[in-house]
Amino acid sequence: MTLVAMLLILAGLFFFAIGVLGILRFPDFYSRLHAAGKSDSLASVLVIVGVALYNLHDFSFANVLVSLKILLIAVFIYVASPTATHALTRTALVLGIEPWEKGKKRR
């Protein structure tokens, strides 16, 4: 069980790194949202599930309750992350941030 938890945390760190790289490398705001919105939610859920599994290695009722709470964070992140992305996109469109198109210089 500890091994599975370690693997999950490692995978989560990998996707976090992808998210940060994407934020730094993509040419414009909207494609940065792609990297941030997708990678971050999956990565944090992977790490959170890993921590919840690791927490169960000495099994007791209190620990099961704590793990349920941790999973609640995961559910919340999955509802909240797309909503935040959506709000950011709309604000950017209203503020008039221009999308990048093929052939333009990166900003």
């Binding site: 792609h34 919105g37 797309p82 959506h86 996109t89 709309r90 469109l93």
Partner: peptide, 15 residues
């Protein structure tokens, strides 16, 4: 559907 589009390959719901 809007949330799913945001989370799935290459697309983000704007409005």
């Amino acid at each position: 559907l809007a949330q799913s589009i945001t989370l799935t390959p290459g697309t983000i719901t704007v409005d």
